[in-house]
Simulated scan of single mutants.
Amino acid sequence: MTGLIRLELIRALRNKKFLFFSVLYPSALFLMIAGTQDAHTEVDGTGLTLPTLFMVSMASFGALTAVLMGNSERIAKERENGWVRQLRLTPLPGRGYVVAKTASAAVVSLPAIVVVFIVAAATKGVRLEAWQWLALTGAIWAGSLVFAALGVAVGYLATGDAVRPITMILYFGLSVLGGLWMPTTTFPGWLQKISSWLPTYAYAGLGQSIELGDAPHAKDLAILVVSFLLFAGGAAWLYRKDTRKA
């Protein structure tokens, strides 16, 4: 399984387009949104300044890009070209394939997180305690596993032609409604209630709590845990279903 993880990492690092969107694109968005904004005015209802709020949002968005976009499309294509079927002829168990995909995607998401932090600190003067930087990195990285599992599930659910539109709908829908692109405090009340139950909202909430010096909210943690179990369970079921078809 470690060999497969190593292979997946090499393939991802050679994909320049993928690296641009997962690593540089979130930092560029951060500069577009927060670059010209006042670094001291707080965003209503958050207790955070706009640069600190969007630093977490864009770091989370970058990790989401790396694990969701990368996994879903790659798996769908591998199913079509027979690569997954070839792997089944090896001693690698089915769960090993799913774990390898999730783990390799999560490793690739780490640079996206770190680059956004560096850009925010260098351009907007975001300053946090050392423990907060470490906790933010760990929380956002660990939370990305939820969406890595979703990417695996989508990759087994959709065909090669359908996977991109399905992934894009999930990608932008979860990002916008979860508050990664704009504060949910700007939404109508009814939409705020819906957003508060999305995994992306809980994902960003982890980082925001750390920035405020607080412990993560129990509701956010519960949403992420339940989402991971649902997505991972769905991926495992779809893998077994796909195996029976082969």
Rank of each mutant, 00 (worst) to 15 (best):
K17R: 14
K17H: 15
F18P: 08
F18L: 12
F18T: 11
F18I: 12
L19V: 13
L19Y: 11
F20C: 11
F20D: 03
F20M: 05
F21Q: 10
S22C: 04
S22P: 05
S22Y: 13
S22M: 10
S22F: 08
V23F: 11
L24Y: 15
L24T: 05
Y25P: 00
P26S: 03
P26W: 06
P26A: 04
P26H: 05
P26E: 07
P26Q: 01
S27R: 13
S27Y: 04
S27H: 06
S27N: 04
A28N: 08
A28K: 04
F30N: 04
F30A: 01
F30T: 03
L31H: 05
L31M: 15
L31C: 06
L31Q: 06
M32G: 12
M32K: 10
I33Y: 14
I33R: 03
I33E: 08
A34G: 00
A34Q: 03
A34M: 07
G35M: 06
G35K: 03
G35Q: 05
T36N: 11
T36R: 06
T36P: 04
T36D: 01
Q37L: 10
Q37V: 09
Q37K: 13
D38Q: 00
D38P: 00
D38A: 00
H40Y: 06
H40K: 09
T41Q: 13
E42Q: 10
E42K: 08
E42F: 12
E42T: 02
E42W: 02
E42M: 11
V43Y: 02
V43W: 05
D44R: 13
D44L: 09
G45N: 04
G45F: 12
G45W: 12
T46F: 14
T46Y: 12
T46M: 09
T46I: 05
G47T: 06
G47E: 00
G47P: 06
G47S: 01
L48F: 10
T49C: 01
L50D: 04
L50T: 06
P51Y: 12
P51D: 07
T52H: 07
T52K: 15
T52F: 13
F54V: 08
F54G: 03
F54A: 02
F54S: 06
M55K: 04
V56L: 11
V56P: 09
S57I: 09
M58F: 15
A59P: 13
A59S: 15
A59N: 07
